[in-house]
Lab assay of single mutants.
Amino acid sequence: GKKITDLRVIDLKSELKRRNLDITGVKTVLISRLKQAIEEEGGDPDNIEL
């Protein structure tokens, strides 16, 4: 897996889109939004599978 902070903006957006989440904002905003979603799913933001 990869750390969420290692993802490119395009990867962050595709992961957010897959979860029907907002894809607007700067990279730090996208990271925190995706991180929260992954944690709510019970996942580990430091080890995500794309």
Rank of each mutant, 00 (worst) to 15 (best):
G1I: 15
G1V: 15
G1L: 03
G1W: 01
K2P: 04
K2M: 13
K3E: 09
K3G: 08
I4K: 03
I4D: 05
I4N: 02
I4W: 00
I4S: 04
T5F: 11
T5G: 13
T5K: 12
T5R: 10
T5I: 14
D6G: 07
D6A: 09
D6I: 02
D6E: 14
D6H: 11
D6M: 08
L7E: 07
L7M: 01
L7D: 02
L7H: 01
L7F: 07
L7I: 04
R8H: 07
R8G: 09
R8V: 06
R8C: 03
V9L: 09
V9Q: 05
V9H: 06
V9T: 15
V9Y: 07
V9R: 08
V9M: 15
V9A: 06
I10Y: 07
I10K: 09
I10G: 12
I10W: 06
D11K: 00
D11L: 02
D11Q: 12
D11T: 04
D11R: 00
D11N: 04
D11P: 02
D11E: 04
L12F: 02
L12Q: 00
K13S: 03
K13H: 12
K13L: 10
K13E: 09
K13M: 08
K13A: 06
S14L: 14
S14P: 01
E15A: 05
E15Q: 11
E15Y: 02
L16Q: 02
L16P: 01
L16S: 01
L16T: 01
L16A: 01
K17F: 08
K17Q: 15
K17D: 13
K17R: 14
K17W: 10
K17M: 13
R19M: 03
R19L: 02
R19S: 01
R19E: 02
R19H: 02
R19A: 00
R19G: 00
R19F: 01
N20K: 12
N20P: 00
N20Q: 13
N20T: 08
N20M: 09
L21D: 01
L21G: 04
L21W: 03
D22G: 08
D22S: 11
D22N: 09
D22E: 07
D22H: 02
I23K: 07
I23P: 13
I23A: 15
I23H: 15
I23C: 12
I23S: 14
T24N: 05
T24A: 13
T24Y: 15
T24V: 04
T24K: 15
T24D: 15
V26L: 11
V26Q: 11
V26G: 14
V26I: 13
V26S: 15
V26W: 06
V26E: 11
K27M: 07
K27L: 01
K27C: 02
K27T: 12
T28S: 15
T28P: 15
T28E: 14
T28I: 12
T28R: 10
T28W: 11
V29Q: 14
V29N: 12
V29G: 08
L30F: 00
L30T: 03
L30C: 04
I31S: 10
I31K: 05
I31Y: 12
I31P: 01
S32H: 06
S32W: 13
S32V: 06
S32P: 04
S32G: 14
S32I: 04
S32F: 08
R33K: 09
L34T: 02
L34D: 04
L34E: 05
L34P: 04
L34K: 03
L34S: 03
K35V: 09
K35F: 07
K35Q: 10
K35E: 06
K35Y: 04
Q36V: 09
Q36L: 14
Q36H: 09
Q36K: 15
Q36D: 10
Q36T: 15
I38P: 05
I38D: 07
I38K: 02
I38F: 00
I38M: 09
I38R: 04
I38E: 03
E39A: 12
E39W: 11
E39D: 10
E39G: 09
E40H: 15
E40P: 00
E40I: 06
E40T: 13
E40C: 11
E40V: 13
E41L: 01
E41I: 01
E41G: 09
E41F: 00
E41N: 08
G42H: 08
G42L: 05
G42T: 06
G43T: 07
G43W: 03
G43C: 10
G43Q: 11
G43E: 07
D44A: 06
D44G: 03
D44L: 05
P45G: 07
P45S: 10
P45Q: 04
D46K: 10
D46Y: 12
D46I: 08
N47D: 09
N47F: 12
N47A: 08
N47P: 03
N47C: 11
N47W: 06
N47K: 12
N47R: 12
I48G: 04
I48T: 13
I48K: 02
I48S: 08
E49P: 10
E49S: 12
L50M: 09
L50I: 15
L50W: 10
L50V: 12
L50Q: 11
L50T: 11
